[in-house]
């Protein structure tokens, strides 16, 4: 079932309710069990997510080098909390526990671009760069 949910997640970016119902019917498993698995693992999301996924690493190495301040600055800048998506569906913020790139700490990833040795003051220019890329 996990592999099936992973496929749906990668196609839609989240797990829509109707898809969970279908999984339950097709795999002949109770919906509660499907929901249980979908809500247990971090890899699954039950609400739609933004076009750009911003992941802020809160692993120990990043934490010690001040990654919570990066997250707070980002939350302030976008007006949303960790785990939420902007109303225009542009950005989602998700904190993660260790991306295994500790030499770059504090590290932040937008889509697949890494931003290393981040500081709260850099947030503005990084977001601008992403938006400019969008417009082009």
């Amino acid at each position: 079932m996990i592999a099936v949910l992973q496929e749906i997640e990668s196609s839609y970016g989240y797990l829509p309710a109707w898809a969970l119902r279908q999984v339950s019917e097709k795999l002949e498993l109770p919906l509660t069990q499907v929901y249980g698995v979908a809500s247990f693992y971090d890899a699954f999301h039950l609400t739609p997510r933004g076009k750009h996924l911003i992941r802020v690493c809160l692993g120990t190495a990043c934490y010690l080098r001040g990654s919570t301040r990066i997250l707070e600055a980002l939350e302030r800048e976008l007006g949303i909390k960790d785990g939420e998506t902007t109303p225009d569906l542009e950005f989602s913020i998700q904190s993660v526990r260790c991306l295994g790139a500790c030499a770059l700490s504090p590290v932040m990833i937008i889509d697949e671009f890494y931003f290393d040795k981040m500081t709260p003051t850099k947030i503005n220019s990084v977001l601008k760069r992403i938006q400019e890329k969008n417009e082009n």
């Binding site: 079932m1 996990i2 592999a3 992973q6 069990q33 249980g36 698995v37 247990f40 693992y41 971090d42 890899a43 699954f44 526990r97």
Partner: peptide
């Protein structure tokens, strides 16, 4: 290869096994 679902507890052997079986870890 089984792709993990992103749960720390799944590093524990019996939770990992449950996860491969498609259950909550």
């Amino acid at each position: 290869i089984i792709r993990g679902g992103g749960a720390f507890v799944c590093g524990e052997s019996s939770a990992l096994v449950a996860s491969i079986e498609g259950k909550v870890g």
